[in-house]
């Protein structure tokens, strides 16, 4: 009797434990590649639109400190999915086994650009010869910059580059300490707000217009999650793409959603920032291949730039192994 009673209690416990596991919401730890800003708004919009809640997914959003930080944290299991520049992932995987895979592309154009002051006589990249630019110390752009110059017939050291803290770049530019800055184009609204105070206007020289092609920001997932719960990866990507479309149609909504979750953000600037990043998402390439696709030739070109910048043999990595097209939503 006692044994039977004990067994039935154990069984009941086991069943309830099982049903608890089945009933528990799927949880995803999402890591953006940088501090909250308009161009990171999509995931916040997805939360605010209730897309995660409807799918029974609990989401925790954190801010990484750069794409390579995201790759590291996904690889070590500190986060499950996140966004980062595809180059950072390719670079990491060329050197070591990093259990992270790109599951969807977001930017089909590289976001890097040079900001200069309008009317300073700098109309094209070649005009930067002998000028001084500020760049963020740990920016991935720094590695590619000499190659972009070379591709445009300039010496790699034709332009002086000062490495500074990201927060110092704007003030240095506004006060004329430097002739311009190297930035992601998504930072333009914040820079414009600052330069307006200084009575100046900005001219943008996007690197994509000077031959720097490839996939930029992409969605990554840890290999552990892909193996353990592939359905969850597919669900999250589906949600992300839905939110992306809503944001492209209505950047103000993306700005407002970010503001709702990160109150210190300026909703208008956030909306402008998203609109600036939408120009890298909603491109001819995306129109042709579909939003989120990894087209083999553009993927190969993304890798060729990384290989060249890192001085790696081109055959040291097959970029196809760094991506999967299995989860890209229709």
């Amino acid at each position: 009797m006692t044994f039977r009673a004990l067994r039935s209690i154990l069984l009941a416990l086991g069943v309830s434990a099982l049903s608890a596991t089945a009933g528990a919401a799927d949880k995803i730890r999402w890591l953006n590649d940088w501090l909250p800003a308009g161009d990171k708004a999509v995931i916040y919009l997805a939360v605010q639109e209730g897309l995660f809640e409807d799918a029974g997914i609990e989401v925790e959003i954190n801010s990484g400190r750069g794409s390579s930080d995201v790759v590291t944290k996904l690889g070590t299991g500190a986060a499950d999915m996140g966004t980062g520049g595809l180059s950072a992932l390719l670079q990491a995987q060329a050197g070591a086994e990093v259990p992270v895979t790109a599951v969807m592309s977001i930017y089909t154009k590289q976001p890097d650009a040079v900001f200069v002051a309008k009317g300073a006589g700098i109309d094209r990249l070649q005009d930067l010869k002998g000028k001084t630019l500020a760049t963020a110390t740990f920016s991935a752009s720094n590695v590619t910059w000499p190659l972009v110059l070379e591709a445009n017939g300039m010496e790699p050291d034709a332009v002086k580059v000062l490495k500074v803290d990201p927060g110092a770049m704007g003030p240095m530019f506004a006060t004329g300490r430097v002739d311009g800055t190297i930035n992601w184009i998504t930072k333009l609204p914040a820079f414009e707000a600052l330069m307006n105070d200084a009575g100046k206007e900005i001219k943008v020289l996007p690197w994509s217009e000077y031959g720097f092609n490839g996939y930029g920001l992409s969605v990554f997932a840890s290999d552990r999650l892909i193996q353990e719960n592939p359905a969850l990866v597919a669900k999250v990507l589906d949600i992300y793409k839905k939110a992306l479309r809503i944001a492209i149609d209505d950047p103000a909504k993306a700005g407002a959603a970010l503001k709702a979750m990160v109150p210190d953000v300026d909703a208008d600037i956030a909306a402008e920032e998203f609109a600036a990043s939408a120009r890298l998402i909603d491109t001819d390439v995306a129109g042709q291949d579909g939003l989120g696709a990894f087209e083999p030739e553009l993927l190969a070109e993304t890798w060729r730039w990384v290989a060249k910048a890192q001085d790696l043999p081109e055959d040291s990595l097959d970029p196809e192994t760094s991506v999967t097209r299995e989860f890209i939503p229709e």
Binding site: N62, G64, R65, G167, P171, L194
Partner: peptide, 21 residues
């Protein structure tokens, strides 16, 4: 500065990223 979603250190990094000195 290294990893956080709130706190005064985070707020300083966040504010300077928008040049709100």
């Amino acid at each position: 500065f290294v990893a956080a979603e709130d706190g005064l250190g985070f707020f300083i990094a966040f504010s300077t990223s928008f040049f709100k000195v």
